[in-house]
Amino acid sequence: MTQAAEAPAVPSKPRTPWITRSGLAVPLILFALFAVLPPILVVSGETFLLTILTRIMIFAIAAVSLDLILGYGAMVSLGHAAFIGIGAYVVGIMAFHGVSDAFLQLLVVLLATGLFALVTGAISLKTSGVYFIMITLAFAQMAYFTTTSLAMYGGDDGLTLRVRSTVFGMSFLGDRITLYYIVFAALLGAFFLCRTLVASRFGRVLQGCRQSPLRMRALGFSPYRYQLVAYVIAGMLAGIAGALLANQIAFVSPAYMSWMRSGELIFMVVLGGMGTLYGAIIGAFAFIAAEEILSHFTHHWRVIFGPLLIIAVLFARGGLISLIFARRGSG
């Protein structure tokens, strides 16, 4: 995140370069880093970091999709991990039955998560505020308990993915660098899709609904329908993250959709800075990296991590990205 400070930062307000005005400076630097890191890591022999970075990007996809509904639509979903789990289970179950074609799997993942999002979203969006939080939690818990009772697919013990997804019958997702770049591409795709959505008329209506549903209704928009569409898109993107997670770990487990995971996704978004999309990526990075680094030092890492979270909230209003911009503004 220090690298962001080296961005073409100009304190004076007029005549800022396009890249700063577009708000793309930080994400582009992030993506450039993600793009060039693998060769560096391979050369320096730190290949295990690739695994962690891949995981960070997978959760970043889910976090970006959550930011779409949370940051722009004010829909605080405490059930977002359910989509990750469903995506993962679709891949796991299809592979279990010998269907490993990536495109077919992707299609079913999108259908399954889209349908789940449509049904649960249609019901959940009748509520708002903390009631929305709890009802999304309820649906995620139902999905969680359903998978734990799937005795045929290992129930609680989870399901080993015997074959990773294949493209035209070829399997190359087992290769870590290939998987890394596929996840990277998915993250790029998710980010720019959400960005385009947010900037579009659809996105403006969505944000309008967040600020004042009443006014939007007066203008002739139905907030409910816009919110539902956003919810379904976010669910499908998180489903893709789940499919990638299944391929990375080669294992699917109900644990992927526990409510703690949903909570962690919210933390990633809030920690990074919500309503920016790339804040979610930074949040995912900070969260997973902090967990990895701290747990390496002590098994009591939560004693440190907990207060860090509190401090982050108290002193970094608007998330970690606010630190970047605050520094830029003052210096």
Binding site: E46, T47, F48, T51, I52, R55, G158, L245, I249, A250, F251, S253, A255, Y256
Partner: peptide, 17 residues
């Protein structure tokens, strides 16, 4: 942490790092 995916990641770190 009783999490299968966390476990896989930690094991990979043990093997490689």
């Amino acid at each position: 942490e009783l999490q299968p995916d966390v476990g896989v990641q930690r094991v990979q770190a043990l093997i490689e790092r």
